[in-house]
Design a binder for these strands. Sequence first.
DNA 1: CATGAATGAGGTTTCATTCAT
DNA 2: TATGAATGAAACCTCATTCAT
Lengths: 228, 228, 228, 228
Amino acid sequence: MPAHRKLALKPRKQPRQARAQATVDALFEATIQVLLTDGLPRLTTIRVAERAGASVGTLYQYYPHKQALLFAVLQRHLSRIGEAVRQAAASAHHTSLATMVSTLIAAFVRAKTERLDEASVLYAVAAELDSRELIRETGRRTRAVLAAMLETATDAKFDDLDTVVFMLAGAMAGLTRSVVETGAPPKMVRALRDHLQSVCLGYLEREARPRSLKSTVGKGRQPQQISS
Amino acid sequence: MPAHRKLALKPRKQPRQARAQATVDALFEATIQVLLTDGLPRLTTIRVAERAGASVGTLYQYYPHKQALLFAVLQRHLSRIGEAVRQAAASAHHTSLATMVSTLIAAFVRAKTERLDEASVLYAVAAELDSRELIRETGRRTRAVLAAMLETATDAKFDDLDTVVFMLAGAMAGLTRSVVETGAPPKMVRALRDHLQSVCLGYLEREARPRSLKSTVGKGRQPQQISS
Amino acid sequence: MPAHRKLALKPRKQPRQARAQATVDALFEATIQVLLTDGLPRLTTIRVAERAGASVGTLYQYYPHKQALLFAVLQRHLSRIGEAVRQAAASAHHTSLATMVSTLIAAFVRAKTERLDEASVLYAVAAELDSRELIRETGRRTRAVLAAMLETATDAKFDDLDTVVFMLAGAMAGLTRSVVETGAPPKMVRALRDHLQSVCLGYLEREARPRSLKSTVGKGRQPQQISS
Amino acid sequence: MPAHRKLALKPRKQPRQARAQATVDALFEATIQVLLTDGLPRLTTIRVAERAGASVGTLYQYYPHKQALLFAVLQRHLSRIGEAVRQAAASAHHTSLATMVSTLIAAFVRAKTERLDEASVLYAVAAELDSRELIRETGRRTRAVLAAMLETATDAKFDDLDTVVFMLAGAMAGLTRSVVETGAPPKMVRALRDHLQSVCLGYLEREARPRSLKSTVGKGRQPQQISS
DNA sequence: CATGAATGAGGTTTCATTCAT
DNA sequence: TATGAATGAAACCTCATTCAT
């Protein structure tokens, strides 16, 4: 785990005048634009400021350093996704696994796909060391939300909910990432929602089966067999 | 899609003597170590050379530039994984879905987990623009291998094999990444193999079912329902 | 001798209202405080204004630029000291050397020590190029005052009054600086007055002796010997 | 006392090749030159490098940051002076006060005056916060050397040697500074040695007198009287 | 008068890469 | 071949100063 100095990643000050708020918004949007057209390694504070129609100095009025700017952009993105997932999960409490999955995945994929460019480009930002904690914390919260939902499923119970939720969230995030980040063909992007639902539902149904039906001899679980 | 200059990413020359091979190995290992302790943004050629017990000059004897070194390290890693997957897939031709999945996932997870640190740290390298093509090409090959295997499954057929393989590969890579990259607790790392098998098998079983059993009204597939 | 642009170092306008005077006082005090806590290199106009409970704009209402503010603060300090010295010197005309010295030093040390923090911190400001002329001019005036006083000494005469006064002033300022600037222990600060008197009186007594008693062979004076 | 981060002020690496040593020397000399012609506030790393006929990068090979460079220059200067004082003091052990003073001051003034430009310009560097500790430490050592010498004086004893030495050192450094820093007329520079001797000898003779001859009533010592 | 947002020149520092030894 | 000193473009960030509100 790489060592590095902890930076305060908070914005430097809140804009008080209307003009200032406009500037901050422009910086935000410019950051995504630059990420999109130049990529993270060529994102410089000057370039962002220029794209926003502002000067570097202005950028630094609101963000103490480059990382804080990127952090803020990532944070907003993750908040949106997190919020979508939270609402979907809340609305699916006390329903069947199938409903839960279809509701959840639909919301998640819609949120991620809504601004496909932003999503694809922020994976690079998320990989930066400084974002690690934010990512982890977001993961924790999402898993809590999923666990709370799954516990109310009308047609399923899980022995090891923690692990199941961990894998479920991982599969959702991971598969989506695979599709979004690499710039997969539109066909695959369109197919994502249904197939992700299939992936998740297939998994959950398997894990919801009573443990007794599975061979559980030896250390860890054995490779599972299809019911013959 | 970000623009970027094309660099020749091939090593400058092949090491012919034993000493040279040792140097190259040391550079490889040093790269991983620096990535681990300092992170990609603080990986400098001098630091890598020092860690390898060599000088910058020597590094540049073998690689025309930094990117080439990183590229080579990533390539070796991907080759290993790819080779493991290829062999597993070949060995599972003409078997059941369950066998295929358990064989494949076991090999894939073992390969990824073998050097957990290397795997976790190379995701950052893979995110670099220059690696995109390598990643894509590796993905294509892996999918071809998987498709060839799945076509010989004794107990399943797939309407849209391309899409299924795309999602299968995505789920494998994505879920593994989620677990490996963020430094998940050991418990989850240990659980990965079985649950990834469950994820994949659950998905493939669902997709292998005859289309007629699913409601397919409208454009795209509808949210799927569990068989009541 | 370093070259530098000439700036108008005068305040921009004289405060006429009570409120304005309060602002100026606050700016003065804030300058000292910032100097104390952050040091000259980190003294910024915004920081000073904030400490003073004002805005940068307001600061620039009273001073055309940062140098002018610092200049003004230094000037006020030097005026105080100069005034104290002038009054003490005037009051000691036509007295003995010993009285002159004790009166003078007492006043000087008291003035410097009164606001020890201010004094200690302004040495840094005084070192700035722009202050050089102010320092020199202040030095000239002080020496004139001292010379005028010494000429009326009832018990001493000096061959080379210019030089003696130059050295006397230098010793006073220099020794005081050594004690004040480096943050000497309180014991030394307390001892300063008496010992500075001793230094000055010892020197003046020596220089007041008739030249004939000293060996003055060669260019310049020879190393002096104690009367055996 | 201003707060600020502690920086490692050590040079970054020792030059190993002859060429490198030449570069370091050039950087050293260039620093003084720039200080002389542009002043501390306009001393930039680029300017120093240019003047040295090198590039900024080279400068940063040997000094981790600007402060370290300035620190090194100041340190060398102080070492020279310190060494001169130490030798002079050592050579004057077990002699009379007068011999001690004349030996010491002669060496001190010669060392300071030898490179008058360097000395005058380094006062500004010494004022920087980062140099404070170096200054203090140098002061401590000098005082120890002076105390050791004075204790062996054949014709004098001191009640409070600590204080006397503190003031003696302060007077030496302070008066010299007053003369050197402000760019005093050559006449005064030439007169410095003799008059500084007079100042110091006058002071020490006074302080060496038996305490009983001084009025010591009340808090602290009273203003001293010339022996009538 | 006061405010504080905006500016942008300029300073510091890093690091990939070259090349004389 | 190996070394490591030197280069300099380019990035980050600061802060004195202006000016619309």
